[in-house]
Amino acid sequence: MLSPYPQLVIAGFRRHSTYRQAALAGLTTNIVFGLLRAAVLLAVLAQRPVVAGYDVAAAVTFVWLGQGLLTVVLLWGDTELATRIRTGDVVIDLGRPWDLQAALLAGDLGRAGFAVLARLVPPMAFGAALFPIRWPERPATWALFAVAAMLAVVVSFGIRFLLNASAFWLLDARGVFAVWGVVGGVLSGLVIPLAWFPEWARTALAFTPAPSLFQTPIDVFLERGEPVGALAGQAFWAVLLLGVGRVVLHRGSRRLVVQGG
């Protein structure tokens, strides 16, 4: 018998594809915000034709790709593990003969796969119909972008996994999610290109995984900067976060097993 993880990827895809109406409703919000954010960035570019390396085409691509990646990378709304810890259902997850973190990651990759079809492609198509999107000039960029997007999902998973695992100690992790929910978007280059931030802020953010989430895949798509180094940075954060996540899960489940919750 094969490893169960490929099947868990497919299951993640299938689970999320059952909520099609919700995906459609979410798409409406994505598109409305895309229009608003594009308007603001275009108003900025009305002052100067190029701001920190972004011209009109790069800026609208930044907006629409960001709106599309939003639910693929998934900053908000993944509270499943925390809920299962709070309700005690995590006992079932810990009782299975699998690697819980790997299983959840597999499911999340499947989820992201569905999101690419349902939530990334439509806003990009919408944006391309109304705005001058800057498409990659080199064919290899598409492959690099696919890798960058996948690494962004893994980094995001690593962060969400840690947020969720905080429920082993806090029980109610909703406050933690709320804080991440409000800072995550701006710090990861979803709202405003990080290149527009002051020098000191960019330097500080470079020491965090935040830019790996949106700024890096978008930069790769826009062919800004050197892609291989950017991907290596993402991979570094992915490995580090997953590693820390393993330790935290081990500690958390040990706490559950030893102290009895």
Partner: peptide
């Protein structure tokens, strides 16, 4: 408590369980 996958058809829950 449930060990099945809430949003998947029962048959797929079984398939996953078998795979795990």
């Amino acid at each position: 408590r449930s060990q099945l996958w809430w949003d998947l058809p029962l048959a797929e829950s079984f398939a996953l369980h078998g795979a795990i």
